[in-house]
Design a protein around this nucleic acid. Structure first.
Length: 506
RNA sequence: GGCCCGUUCGUCUAAGGGCUAGGACACCACCCUUUCACGGUGGUGAUACGAGUUCGAAUCUCGUACGGGCUACCA
């Protein structure tokens, strides 16, 4: 009997949502949709010292932009709330105590100073970072070393304490990972992790297990960095709810930057975004640029993210969200980490811009131009412009560079490009051309080109030598789509005005 | 240091014992284009190393090297 598929993503509200986090969201989303299940989002905010105001809203904004909204969260509602761990605080202690009673955990009263001392005293060259584990726990102040009466007394006095898991010695724990297959751990090398902190909040280890159980999670995907703590979670499942209830785990490979795990520093250093959307750290005021603001289409973002560690086995690389839902399978996810390649990311965006319809790009391009001070744009003209230039744009922001000259006549001209070959004959040609253009009935690319060539032939000048000056007259420089297309969109009056104006400078 | 994961062109990857190891990005050349792109054609370029199993290994096993992750009352 299969359980209903319920996957969850649990971000901590401590900053921007980076590529790795977004990919985890994506895989959760795809998997849930594919199996007609639920995509649950809960907020992991048990470390209140790291809580950053605005981060929760930011997370939801990113998911909305990417089109990966959860079916269940504090914003979307659901039957398994609260979806913020800090609001579930009371439920965790009960389970921690249950573990203590079963002999799988214990109270520890060690102060931070005592822990510091332990780490210092036990440090050797062979063991640079001693852990609170089976070899040292009997030398510390906890309910294993204190007699029961004293433990009880300390507890009643309200002595600050934590609850630690008691890792068994020499037990082999086997994880059956959906991506990696069997992974085994020896429990004696895992330390006695804190389960419940002195402030009453659970650590990730306890919270993830308790919440996954209470929220009936069937599949849990998370980054590979969690693999080493998997034995803790498995033991918790075993002792609390039974292994048969445990969700199926998948540890996703890391997304790497140029050196190691991708960090937001890498973005600033190498000039590419690492967050889905712009994130300004309220403490430092530091801005980290997002894919959205950099000019990525959400469809392209999802597409490139999905292919960072997954493929469907064919040579297809461009997928719509619907295709991804249909074709995604967790067991085809790679086990090796993937280095993020910004050039390839841009290629995906370019492909998506080419694939997009003019109508779908219109509002984005319009607001882009508005931001740059170009307003009052005619709909029909904007559509023609987009159609003409979209194949030339890799990022959405390129639309400005590729189109502003349609709406703003040049103030400066690249005269250096014209001068060396400029002469009276050419000047004469453009004067004749202006008067002929003034009489053109059908203002279309083909007619414009025909008239241009006829006039050139009549004056015995190669048309090729005239096209560059013409272009510079219309747009100011050596750029843009084919000249006659530009002239057509500009219209008769504007074209002639620009020619006249430029001729005074040439 | 210990534990865990990983390793196919520069990068993302395909090939799950059997053809000249395939594709994409990037790069280079040519074509198209008298701007720049797009596009088209072609090219350079990889199984980390060493053993073993096998008629046959990128693929299975072991070792080595290298890379990464974890080693907090952070997630």
């Amino acid at each position: 009997m299969d359980k209903r598929v319920r996957v969850r993503f649990a971000p901590s509200p401590t900053g921007g949502l980076h590529l790795g986090g977004m990919r985890t969201v994506l895989y959760n989303y795809l998997f849930a949709k594919k199996h007609g299940g639920d995509f649950v989002l809960r907020i992991e905010d048990t470390d209140q010292s790291r809580y950053v105001a605005g981060a929760e809203e930011y997370i939801f904004d990113c998911l909305k932009w990417a089109g990966l909204e959860p079916t269940e969260s504090l914003l979307h509602g659901g039957n398994y709330g609260p979806y913020r761990q800090s609001e579930r605080k009371d439920t965790y202690r009960k389970y921690a105590q249950q573990l203590v009673e079963g002999g799988h955990a214990y109270y520890a009263f060690d102060t931070p100073e005592e822990l510091e001392k332990m780490r210092h005293d036990f440090r050797t060259e062979q063991n640079p970072s001693p852990q609170y584990d089976h070899s040292v726990r009997m030398k510390m102040r906890n309910s294993l070393t204190l007699d029961p009466g004293e433990t009880k007394k300390l507890l009643e006095e309200g002595m600050r304490h934590v609850i630690r898991i008691k890792m068994p010695e020499h037990e082999t724990i086997i994880l059956n990972d959906l991506i990696r297959g069997e992974v085994s751990f020896d429990t004696s090398v895992v330390d006695d992790k804190v389960l419940l902190k002195a402030d009453g909040m659970p650590t990730y280890h306890l919270a993830v297990v308790v919440d996954d159980h209470l929220m009936k999670i069937s599949h849990a995907f998370r980054g590979e960095e969690w693999l080493p703590s998997a034995p803790v979670h498995i033991l918790l499942w075993k002792n609390l709810f039974g292994l048969q209830e445990m969700p199926q785990w998948a540890h996703l490979p890391l997304i790497l930057g140029p050196n190691g795990k991708l960090s937001k520093r890498d973005g600033a250093k190498y000039g590419f975004p690492v967050f889905a959307m712009n994130w300004t750290d309220p403490k430092t005021n530091e801005l980290t640029e997002g894919f959205k603001e950099k000019g990525f289409l959400p469809e392209a973002f999802i597409n490139l993210l999905a292919l960072l560690g997954w493929n469907d086995g064919t040579e297809q690389e461009i997928f719509t969200k619907e295709e991804l839902v249909e074709k995604f399978s967790i067991d085809r996810v790679h086990s090796g980490g993937a280095k993020f390649d910004y050039e390839k990311a841009k290629w995906f965006n370019h492909e998506w811009i080419k694939k997009s319809t003019v109508a779908s790009l219109e509002s984005v391009v319009r607001s882009l131009l508005n931001e740059q001070g170009i307003t009052g744009i005619n709909d029909a003209i904007l559509e023609e412009v987009i159609e003409l230039i979209k194949d030339r744009c890799t990022l959405l922001t390129d639309f400005y560079d590729q189109s502003y000259f349609f709406f703003r006549s040049p103030e400066k001209w690249d005269v250096d490009a014209v001068k060396p070959k400029w002469n009276e004959e050419k000047k004469e040609f453009f004067n004749v051309l202006m008067s002929k253009y003034a009489n053109v009935q059908m203002w279309h690319t083909t007619q414009l080109e025909d008239v241009f060539k006829e006039t050139a032939a009549a004056l015995k000048i190669k048309p090729g030598e005239l096209q560059l000056p013409f272009r510079i007259m219309l747009v100011g420089g050596k750029f843009g789509p084919p000249v006659f297309n530009i002239a057509e969109i500009l219209g008769k009056d504007e074209t002639i005005t620009r020619m006249k104006k430029a001729l005074t400078v040439f």
